Amino acid sequence: MTQPSSLPSLTPQFCFSTVILRDFLRISRSSIDDTITQNLNALATPAKTGFDPTSTSRLQSRPSTRSIDPNDCHAFREQVLFPSWQTRSDIISYCSLVATSPDPSDPEAALRDAENEKNRERVIDERLDPYSARYFPREPRTEQLASILRQEMGVENIIRARTWDIIKERCGDPTATSWEEALAQWRRTHSSS
Rank of each mutant, 00 (worst) to 15 (best):
A99M: 11
R122G: 03
I91P: 01
E156P: 01
I27D: 10
T11N: 00
S84D: 14
Y131P: 01
D72F: 11
P8D: 02
R62V: 08
C15K: 03
R22V: 07
S57K: 09
N157W: 05
L59G: 11
Y135M: 03
P70A: 05
D125V: 05
L111Q: 12
K118R: 12
I91F: 03
Q144A: 12
Q185L: 06
G154N: 13
T65A: 05
R66A: 00
T65H: 03
R162H: 11
L40K: 05
R134F: 11
F14C: 01
L149P: 11
E181P: 04
Q60P: 10
A114C: 08
R141C: 05
T45F: 11
E180T: 02
A161L: 02
S55V: 07
N41E: 04
R26M: 14
T87C: 08
E139V: 02
Q13T: 01
Q79S: 13
T163S: 04
T100W: 15
S96Y: 12
S64R: 06
W85V: 08
C95N: 08
I148T: 11
A146G: 03
E156Q: 03
L43H: 04
N119C: 13
P137K: 06
L81Y: 15
A161D: 00
D90G: 06
S192Q: 14
P4E: 14
A182S: 00
E115M: 09
P4Q: 10
D69F: 14
R66P: 02
S30E: 09
L25H: 09
D72C: 05
E139D: 08
S84N: 15
F24V: 02
S17M: 10
L128A: 04
V123M: 13
G172V: 11
I159F: 12
F14N: 01
D34S: 06
R88T: 04
T18D: 09
R162E: 11
H74Q: 14
S64Q: 09
N71T: 12
E126P: 06
F76Y: 07
I148K: 07
S105Q: 15
D69V: 12
R77N: 02
R160A: 01
K118L: 10
S55H: 12
P140S: 00
I167E: 14
F51W: 01
T142C: 13
F51Y: 02
L21F: 02
T45I: 15
F51K: 02
L43Q: 04
E181W: 10
I20K: 05
C171H: 10
Y131L: 03
A99E: 14
K118Q: 10
N157P: 01
D90A: 13
E143D: 11
D129P: 00
E117P: 04
D69M: 14
P12M: 05
C15P: 03
S191F: 14
P8H: 04
T35I: 14
R66V: 01
T177S: 15
R187M: 01
D52E: 15
G154T: 09
A42N: 08
E152T: 06
P12Y: 05
R62H: 05
I148C: 09
S64L: 13
D69I: 12
D90H: 09
L59R: 12
S105F: 13
T18F: 07
T163N: 02
E169Y: 14
T100I: 13
S191T: 13
T100A: 15
A176F: 11
I68Q: 02
S89Y: 08
W179A: 02
T54P: 07
T189K: 13
T100G: 15
T49H: 12
K48V: 09
E78W: 12
S17V: 06
